[in-house]
Structures are given as C-alpha cells and as structure tokens.
Amino acid sequence: MEKEILRMTNIVKTYKMGGEDQVVLKGINLTVNEGEFISILGPSGSGKSTLMNIIGCLDTPTSGEFILDGRNVSDQSEKQLSKIRSKEIGFIFQSFHLLPRLSAKKNVELPLIYAKITKQEREEIAVNTLIRVGLDDKLNHRPNQLSGGQQQRVAIARALSNNPTILLADEPTGSLDQSTGKQVMELFTELNKEGRTIIMITHDANIATYANRIVKILDGYLSEGDEGDA
C-alpha cells in the first residue's frame, strides 16, 4: 500500500468578482500517493490555477478538507502556511521567476534561507542540487547568462533544495521551445523515478502524457483521465 500524501475532499473555492460570487472550484476530490507523477490537464479558465494555488498552500479553500502529509491545511494562519510551503512544496513556474541579481547558486539557496538552514549547509545543498540538474558549470552564472532551459533547471533545483514532499509545476514548459521542453520533461521523469512526487499543471495534452496519471479539470470539476504512458 502506497503512502497517501495529499487528500482533497469536496474542495470549493469561491471568489468575489464585481460584487458577484463566482464559484471556481465546485467540489474537487483528489488523492495523490507518494511517488506519483500526476498531470492536471485543463484549458485556461477551467480553475486549474486556483487548484494549484490551493495545493501549493498559497490560498485556502472556501470549504472542504485538504490534508497534506497528514496535516489539515484548510484552517492554517498565513504564517503557518509559509512554514508548510517552505517544508512541503517545491514550486516550479512557467516563467521561472528567478531573481535576476542573484547567481544560480544564490537563487537555489533562497528557500533554504527561509527554512533557516545554516550558510555552510545551504551552499552544499545548492551546489549538489545544481549538479543533480546538470548545471555544475553554471553555479555562479546569473539568470540572464543562462538559456531558458537552463533557467528552468535552476528553478527545478531551487524547488528541490528543500527536499519537499511535492514538486508542484505550473506549465513548466510553457516558456520553452519544444526540444528544451522535452529535456525538462525528461528531467521530471527521472526525478519521479527517484521517488519524487510531482504534480504538474498544464493545458498541453502532449506534455501531460509524461505523467503516469492524468486528471482533467473543466469548469471547476475534476475527472480522472487516461493513464499516461511515460
């Protein structure tokens, strides 16, 4: 029996827009086990970003229960959510979001600073994770000295540095050309084989197939899709 890492029960998220309540997520049920690579596939406006924010503990659901690694996240304070994000979630964004003035190494160290890891340990971890994503010769390069693919690798290394429970990727190939995107996806597959739990959000059905499980989101409802053939 695999360990259950995430369980969402009847998650509803409502936004107030122009004085009107807009229900974006209409009762989401989702369970993710440790070591899974799951794609959440949906067009824009389907509510997938909102779902990602809730999974990433950037936002809390209006109602429903969200258990992450055995802890109920639905009713945590902002400070506690920061701690959960720091420990449990490794974010990877479409537009990388690297800090332009910091070297690759310093960028990777950033989450470790907030996790209050000592300087010496930070550097060691940063170097090791950058080696892991194949950037051993780019440690002191700044983002603008790196290609898009390399930048996304730095971002992946940053997401990995805290050894999070879940890697949460939002359109990780959205800003990359096809071949670079493919390389990034292959890195994801490798990481998954090493035992990483990965949740990837995308609108691209081809990319979604790298996962070994696909769920589709449409109009705020989630439905299990076909098994991927990674």
């Binding site: 950037l58 902002e78 400070k79 920061s82 720091s86 950033l110 989450p111 907030y114 940053r158 805290n162």
Partner: peptide, 15 residues
Amino acid sequence: TEIGLRKALGAEPSN
C-alpha cells in the same frame, strides 16, 4: 513578483 516568489518559497510576512 519577487515578493510573491519569496512568499511561495516559504518567506513569512514578517521576513
């Protein structure tokens, strides 16, 4: 963006 990113990476509001 930077502030949002820092928060996503675990920075508390006080940080």
